[in-house]
C-alpha cells in the first residue's frame, strides 16, 4: 500500500471507529476551559535558538501597535 493510501486508510479507520465522543469532549472542554483545547491564533509557535542557529530565521518584529508596512517602503527600498 502506498503512503498516500496509508494516510487515507488512517482517516477511514478513525471515521469508521466512531471512537470520538462529542458529548464527552464537550464536557471536557466545559470542565477545563476552552483555552486548553485551542491554540493561539496569532503565532505559529516559538523560536528557540542562539545567534548561530538563527541564521535564516527572521528577526523578531514587535507588532504591538503595528503600522501598515507600506509606510516604511521608502526606508526599505530607497524609493
Amino acid at each position: 500500500m502506498s503512503n498516500a493510501a496509508n494516510r487515507e486508510e488512517i482517516v477511514r479507520k478513525f471515521l469508521g471507529s466512531k471512537v470520538f465522543d462529542f458529548n464527552a469532549f464537550g464536557k471536557f472542554v466545559a470542565e477545563n476551559g476552552a483555552s486548553i483545547a485551542s491554540a493561539s491564533e496569532s503565532e505559529f509557535g516559538f523560536v528557540v535558538g542562539n545567534r548561530f542557529i538563527r541564521y535564516c530565521i527572521p528577526p523578531v518584529v514587535e507588532v504591538e501597535q503595528g503600522i501598515n508596512p507600506a509606510a516604511i517602503r521608502n526606508e526599505v527600498t530607497g524609493r
Binding site: V63, Q65, I67, P69, I72, E75, V76, T77
Partner: peptide, 27 residues
C-alpha cells in the same frame, strides 16, 4: 506594499524614529 513584508503589521516603534535610525530599524 512595495516589498514583501514579514506580516500584516510592521513595528510601530519605527514611528518614533527619524533619519538613519528609522532606516536601520525598517531594514
Amino acid at each position: 506594499v512595495g516589498f514583501l513584508p514579514a506580516g500584516r503589521s510592521a513595528s510601530g516603534r519605527i514611528r518614533r524614529l527619524n533619519g538613519h535610525d528609522k532606516t536601520r530599524c525598517a531594514l
